[in-house]
C-alpha cells in the first residue's frame, strides 16, 4: 500500500495527524466486558470507528470429535466481517484475509489461555466486525482477551494489542485507515504485559532496522494503554460498586 500521492496531509507542521491526533496518541478506545446473554463470555470494543463484538463459548465438547486432543483443550477463533462493515459491501463468505487473521489471532491468544487444564474440550471465540476502520485485528484481539476473561477461562495474562506504523516518515502509534492506505508501514502488535511476550506481530511496509526497533517499542507502549482499559472493563463489570475490590 506504498506511499501513493493524495491530497491527504498525514502529518502537519505541528505534528498533528489527519484525524487530529499526536504521533503517540491512540484513537478513542472503549471496551465493555459482557453484554451477550447466551455466550459464556463476551466483550464489545470501540477502537476509533471500529466496532467489534466478541462472544466466547467453552470449555465445551468438541464437534467434530476428531478435532479434540486428549492432552489439551483447543482454541478455535473465527474472525468475520459483516457485509455492511466496510464502504463497498463485502461478500459475507470468509475471505482468505479473514482466514489468515483468524489464524494469527488464535496463535496470539494461545500463549495466554491455559488450555492444558481442559483436555478434550474446545474454547470457541467468535469475532464479528460490525464496522471496520483500520486496525481491526488489534481491536478484535484486545476484545477477545476480555471476552475470554469474562468467560472465566484461566489465563496467564491478557493479550493487549495495538498497531504502530510509519506515515510521513514518522513512527506513529495506532495506524488508522487513511494512514494504512497512504502511509509507509503498518505493524500490528499483540503483547502480554505481565509476561513480557509478543504474541502477534506482523508488518507490511519498509522500515530501517532502527525504525523497526522504534516501531516495536511504540506499539508495545500502545498495548500497555489498551491493557489498562481491558482491566478497567473487567473491573467495571465485576467490581462495579467498589464493594468486592
Amino acid at each position: 500500500m506504498g506511499g501513493r500521492d493524495t491530497e491527504l496531509v498525514l502529518l502537519d507542521e505541528n505534528g498533528i495527524r489527519c484525524d487530529g491526533r499526536k504521533v503517540d496518541e491512540p484513537r478513542r478506545i472503549m471496551i465493555k466486558a459482557g453484554g451477550l446473554k447466551n455466550a459464556d463470555g463476551s466483550a464489545y470494543i470501540e477502537f476509533g470507528d471500529n466496532k467489534i463484538l466478541v462472544g466466547v463459548f467453552g470449555p465445551r465438547d468438541v464437534h467434530p470429535k476428531h478435532m479434540s486432543n486428549t492432552d489439551t483443550g483447543i482454541l478455535r477463533v473465527r474472525y468475520h466481517m459483516e457485509p455492511f462493515s466496510v464502504t463497498e459491501r463485502k461478500n459475507p463468505a470468509p475471505s482468505r484475509r479473514e482466514i489468515e487473521i483468524s489464524k494469527v489471532i488464535k496463535e496470539a491468544l494461545e500463549p495466554a489461555v491455559m488450555l492444558d487444564k481442559f483436555p478434550r474440550t474446545a474454547v470457541d471465540v467468535f469475532i464479528e466486525v460490525l464496522q471496520a476502520d483500520g486496525g481491526t485485528r488489534c481491536a478484535a484481539l484486545s476484545a477477545a482477551s476480555v471476552a475470554l476473561a469474562d468467560a472465566g477461562i484461566p489465563m496467564r495474562d491478557m493479550v493487549a494489542a495495538c498497531a504502530a506504523g510509519k506515515a510521513a516518515d514518522t513512527i506513529i502509534l495506532d495506524v488508522n485507515n487513511e494512514e494504512d492506505q497512504a502511509g509507509q508501514a503498518d505493524m500490528p502488535i499483540g503483547y502480554m504485559p505481565s509476561m513480557d511476550k509478543i504474541t502477534l506481530l506482523q508488518l507490511d511496509g519498509i522500515l530501517t532496522p532502527e525504525e523497526f526497533k522504534k516501531c516495536v517499542e511504540t506499539g508495545i507502549k500502545g498495548c500497555k494503554i489498551v491493557y489498562e482499559l481491558q482491566k478497567k472493563a473487567l473491573t467495571e463489570k465485576y467490581f462495579a460498586n467498589g464493594d468486592s475490590k
Binding site: 494469527v104 506481530l201 519498509i206
Partner: peptide, 10 residues
C-alpha cells in the same frame, strides 16, 4: 531494510 514480517505459532 525490513519490509514485511509475520509471527506465527502458539
Amino acid at each position: 531494510n525490513i519490509c514485511a514480517l509475520q509471527k506465527g505459532g502458539n
